[in-house]
């Protein structure tokens, strides 16, 4: 009977084993493979050649630079457009729940469909496809990802901070600059990462909106693999992975410290 009970305690854990196994096999092992491919030539020998190819190829670096440019500009535009939206919504009654819903609704429609719709309109009104349309498409796609975390973090600011600031003699703009803005830092950081990472790694959007003229990093990774250049593709994936890990680290850091950041203000 004792064994029965002990076994039962173990059985509950056992429930997680299939999933752990599944994830190991289909998530971890593929990642290890990417890692391995990055250091292998076509005959499966160890090599640094793939890194050399990527980091010396002008076109690859140009695409990377281009992606970072699009990423930064998109993120900045989203932040500039999104922050006022989040702020205004947070002030309205019931934190503007219905309005927030309206702002994030388009997110639920497949991005490809939205992008094609945008493209159709650009074509119809005769706008030339290029960097401008790509940036518009990116902002259009990722703006909700910026508004949502911003709104959450601004809403979670204790109203008494704002009242205290006012009580201590701060006027409207000072209250905003000295309390609301710093206290919504965690929202800003997660908004930035939630826009920046998908933008640089995005696949298809920029091609569609520039008629194939502008290639971003995501497209380029796909292209390398479809050309069977697995090694270089793997190296590029690792570069992308590095961005992802750095951003998730930054995000964790800010979200963890958000409370103590709030405290250190006082």
């Amino acid at each position: 009977m004792k064994q029965f009970l002990k076994k039962f305690h173990v059985t509950k854990r056992v429930f997680s084993y299939p999933y752990i196994l599944f994830m190991l096999l289909f998530v971890i092992v593929p990642l290890v493979m990417i890692f391995a491919y990055a250091f292998m030539d076509n005959d499966h020998n160890f090599t640094f050649e793939n890194f050399k190819i990527f980091f010396t190829s002008q076109s690859s670096l140009y695409v990377l630079g281009n992606s970072l440019f699009v990423g930064v500009v998109t993120t900045v535009i989203c932040l500039v457009l999104g922050y006022p939206v989040a702020y205004i919504l947070s002030k309205s009654k019931n934190s503007g729940k219905v309005m927030v819903l309206l702002f994030v609704l388009p997110m639920w429609v497949n991005f490809l469909i939205r992008t094609l719709a945008t493209k159709a309109i650009f074509l119809a009104i005769g706008v030339e496809l290029g960097m401008g349309t790509v940036l518009f498409g990116m902002v259009y796609n990722y703006l909700p990802f910026m508004i949502l975390p911003l709104h959450t973090s601004i809403c979670s600011i204790d109203k008494s901070y704002i009242e205290a600031a006012k009580d201590l003699g701060a006027d409207g703009s000072t209250v905003f600059l000295k309390t609301i803005l710093p206290l919504s830092k965690s929202g800003i950081m997660s908004g930035i990462t939630m826009v920046f990472i998908p933008t640089i790694s995005t696949f298809a959007i920029s091609q569609l909106l520039s008629n194939g003229k502008i290639f971003l990093f995501g497209d380029s990774i796909e292209l390398k693999f479809s050309q069977d250049m697995y090694g270089v593709g793997a190296v590029m994936s690792l570069v992308m992975l590095a961005f992802v890990l750095i951003s998730s680290f930054v995000m964790n850091h800010y979200n963890k410290n958000s409370v103590s950041v709030g405290r250190s203000l006082w």
């Binding site: 998530v27 593929p30 998908p198 693999f225 994936s237 992802v244």
Partner: peptide
């Protein structure tokens, strides 16, 4: 958490390689 934070394109190519 990983599949959620990871960029989709990297997930996609890692599946393909596998």
């Amino acid at each position: 958490q990983f599949p959620i934070i990871n960029s989709e394109i990297v997930m996609a190519v890692s599946f393909m390689i596998f």
